[in-house]
């Protein structure tokens, strides 16, 4: 089954980096949607079926914490797999995110780190099945 993914970040460059990592990861990707803040993300979620959301924290209009709270309050998205991709370094905030069922990837990340968390969260494939998709040395080719 192909995964439909939503990437939420106010930086277009960072969205491009995350999407490139997703494409290199060997994951069975379906549609990839983008949003630059939490409100846009909610509109994308209304319009499309999403299997996995990767969200930044510090964004204008609606930040990632508010978006995550909205997702968890809505029965339709309460169980949506979410990975927060952020520069956040506070263990206090990261623990609060984990309590809401979000995984966490710290920026800067290597493609391998992001892939590992995606595999853990989605459980779509065993990592050993995907080694050809994103092998060692993929970093400089990002």
């Amino acid at each position: 089954m192909a995964l439909n993914v939503l990437v939420v970040d106010d930086s277009a460059v960072m969205r491009a980096m995350v999407i490139k990592t997703l494409r290199l990861s060997g994951l069975p990707l379906g549609e990839v949607h983008e949003a630059s803040n939490g409100e846009e993300a909610l509109r994308q979620l209304d319009a499309h079926w999403i299997d996995l959301a990767l969200i930044d924290l510090n964004m204008p209009v609606m930040d990632g914490e508010a978006l995550l709270a909205c997702l968890r309050r809505n029965p339709e998205t309460a169980q949506l797999p979410v990975i927060v991709v952020s520069t956040e370094g506070s263990t206090t905030r990261i623990e609060a995110l984990r309590r809401q069922g979000a995984a966490f990837v710290h920026k800067p990340f290597t493609p391998e780190q992001l892939r590992g968390v995606i595999l853990e969260v989605t459980g779509v494939a065993d990592a050993s099945d995907l080694d050809e998709g994103l092998g060692p040395g993929c970093g400089p080719d990002f």
Partner: peptide, 25 residues
């Protein structure tokens, strides 16, 4: 994005990992 990531990474090194900072755009 580079500046944002440097800032987010240096603050916990200075104040401790449990401290909470808010970064502006």
């Amino acid at each position: 994005e580079i500046a944002n990531v440097i800032c987010g990474n240096v603050l916990p090194r200075l104040a401790g990992a449990e401290q909470v900072f808010r970064l502006q755009a």
